[in-house]
Design a binder for these strands. Sequence first.
RNA 1: GCCUCCGUGGCGGAAUUGGUAUACGCGUACGGUUUAGGACCGUAUUCCGUAAGGAUUAGAGGUUCAAGUCCUCUCGGAGGCACCA
Length: 862
Amino acid sequence: MDKYNHKKTEAKWPDSAKASTGKQKEYDHSVVEAKWQAKWAKEQIYKTPGTGEKKRYVLDMFPYPSGASMHVGHLEGYVGTDILSRYFRMKGHSVLHPMGWDAFGLPAENYAIKTGIHPDKSTHENIKTFRRQLEISGMSYDWDKEIDTSSPEFYKWTQWIFIQLFKAGLAYKKKSPVNWCPKDETVLANEQVVEGKCERCDTEVIQKDMDQWFFKITAYADRLISGLEKIDWEDEVKRQQINWIGRKEGINIRYKVVGSDKEIEVFTTAPVNFGMTFLVLSPEHKLLKELKLPKAYQESVAKYIKEHLSSSSNSTNVANKSNKTKTGVFTGLYVANPINNKEVPVWVSDFVVAGVGTGAVQGCPGHDLNDFEFAQEYKLPIVRVIVGKDGDASEITKKDQVIEHGMEGRFINSDFLNGLDFEEGLQKTMDWFEDKGLGKRTVTYHIRDWLISRQRYWGCPIPMVYCEDDGWQPVPDTDLPVKLPSDVDFLPHGESPIARSETFQKDVVCPICGKQVKREVDTMDTYVDSSWYFMRFCDPKNKNEFASKENIIPVDDYVGGGHVVQHLLFARFFWKFLFDQGLIDKSVGDEPFLKLRAPGWILGPDSRKMSKRWGNVITPDDIIPKFGADTLRVYEMFMGPFDVMKPWSITGVEGIARFLGRVWRLFSTEYKVHSTEENTEVLSKLHQTIKKVGEDVENYKFNTAISSLMELVNTLTEAGSQKSEIRNEVGKTKIENQTSIQTPNISHQTSEVLSALARLMAPFAPHMMEEIWVEVLGMPFSIHASPWPSYDPKLIVQNEVTVVVQINGKVRASMKLESEISKQESEVTKLAKSDPNVTKWLEGQTIKKTIFISGKVINFVI
RNA sequence: GCCUCCGUGGCGGAAUUGGUAUACGCGUACGGUUUAGGACCGUAUUCCGUAAGGAUUAGAGGUUCAAGUCCUCUCGGAGGCACCA
């Protein structure tokens, strides 16, 4: 603990500048940062330009303003997008960089239950804290575009979009088994159930039959997969989305139950029907109630069903059962396999899940691992119909002999399929069933329709009324928004607290017949708000539309973590829907987030996740008063790659503070480059850095951008100190005494270098660079509105390069050569052979081969 | 169980298409400066060795003139999916 209690010790910062010379102007970050933050706000320099050729939308996933304030980990993504925004503004783009609040949500309501403080009040207090923390961090948000999902101006349009979905047949109310969290007393979407538990409170989720609102996201399943090809996201995230959607092509086959007129339909992706030896129904299967079982089996089957009826039949996120041995029971029934006219037994087992496919599976144990395990457990026959690439055609008795779909193989023991390739044979089998009218090719999905009803208060009211004559009707546009009532008690009673509001149901009439009706009392999942907020940012004050068509643009750079499946999938669904409705311009495309990056977590100094529990939470308020926002920003970006986890280090922060101190002194000390040689070296370094920083920023490689800036600063400092040494000898003057920045005296040549350096650093350390720009370099306000430096490719080329001499691949010497010479093999060979280190190794040897890599390496093989 | 990504000094981490491994920063040591300092400046710092030299990117093999980078296996870590038919 003591190592990290920097809060307690009075920091000695920021008096570094004053220390080295009594005359130098001090850099007091608290004064400078406050000064420029006020000026930037007053001059509105971050206002989104109304017009502009090169529009660029840079967005953070907006935060939920929780009671705990922001910590330095939250800031990482915000600093990244801030650097991008500042960089693109300097590059001449019209940047839209807004911020807002995902203000509805359960924690505020739970807090209200505990304390009696209204969610509206606590949420807005939290927003104030969050906004202040962002402002003192020097963020360049256009605050004119700020939005708050809990404001009626915003949720009016959430409701309006709901109604559009309803009118398009994509919002519907249906009674179905749903995930119910007994602690939060609300239903949850499948996406919000993690390992059978509530995502928020970790309570075991139970199943309940309830009448709920759904959005038909399944209608977009295919497009949600195919659209991923067009966008720049991490492959990992794309894969997770594809996985969640879970598209599978296969066939539904109907089997006649022997001695009955009933049929059982199974879904399979791999109909290896000559290897089918049984059929399995899930315990929930409807037919089990309809079929007449032989007496001898009735009792055991009923008992099995009772014991193994899944507690969460609808959810595919059921509790972990996969490691258990499979159980099951024979029903006494048989079905006929038409392809070989064999009868196979029908079993019941809970390894077959009701919600997947048809809830019934054909058992082909030779070629499916689950079927194999089941067959082994109950001594059911195992027939081999595929030979894999190992050529083994013997009886299958071991797990690793099972050749599954997707592996290489050829058919055997399968009549007309014999000799066919695995995949080809499956297609032939499907053709056979389709021809006979016994089956039909189908596509199944893992994704379910999105359940959006919540029995909670602090959310957007669902704008629907129920009329006994006309059914569910949307509230007319002119009556929107349906305002959230304030006269409620928050204690949950298994229904929405709004149900107990006296004002909410007052004078509500059916828009069709005018009869007195009741409003829907449930609210929407907060993911509905976040599914379209980024569109509202394009036109946040529009009173007539959710956002006008000409203003909506997709997000170019979207930064945020988590929510990989939920938010990103839901938001893409909304965008595609509104796009299809013609409410988004066709030219901008049907994907909302063109590039997506997730910042890695910042861990505590103890390498544990920051949390109150470990006492390792560090907030911007712990750092900024002592080190300044610039130090915090540069440190967070320098820590490591943007997208990986990394631990906080207070000595690392101090290192950055030292670096910025060096930068300040570099500018505030008279600096000149004298000889031509140093001059070109410095210029070459500068132009290399301009190129590298630009490229790195665009690729989110902020850590290496900063290290190259450090190298440039080191080069400049060295060049400066060489000059000072000369003066020391000649003029016998001490460096410290000769400088003062009161009247900057900077040569033309130098100011070009320094002006470029200041601009390169401006996105990272905006306050100090503004101070340097205006007060030291005497340039007009603001550095953040000045153009990004451009580089000259000719100046990047170094005139001296190092060529390495290898013997058998081992480095034996290196030579500094002029660039031109380093490209000539004969010249380099001659020079290399004359190097004493090389001759020593080559003595008495014959060179078998020489490999020459122009300008880099010459390798002699002996 | 399956899939994906990752493993580089005391630490965080750099390294175009295979072409000087350890950039940059932290820490440490010594020296300087200062009334003093946890500030600032300088030098050193992968390991072994006085040196010449040798070893080194989790471990073991392989391809290559040349491997942190490509291939195979093993170990370790992170994440995702998890009876998906």
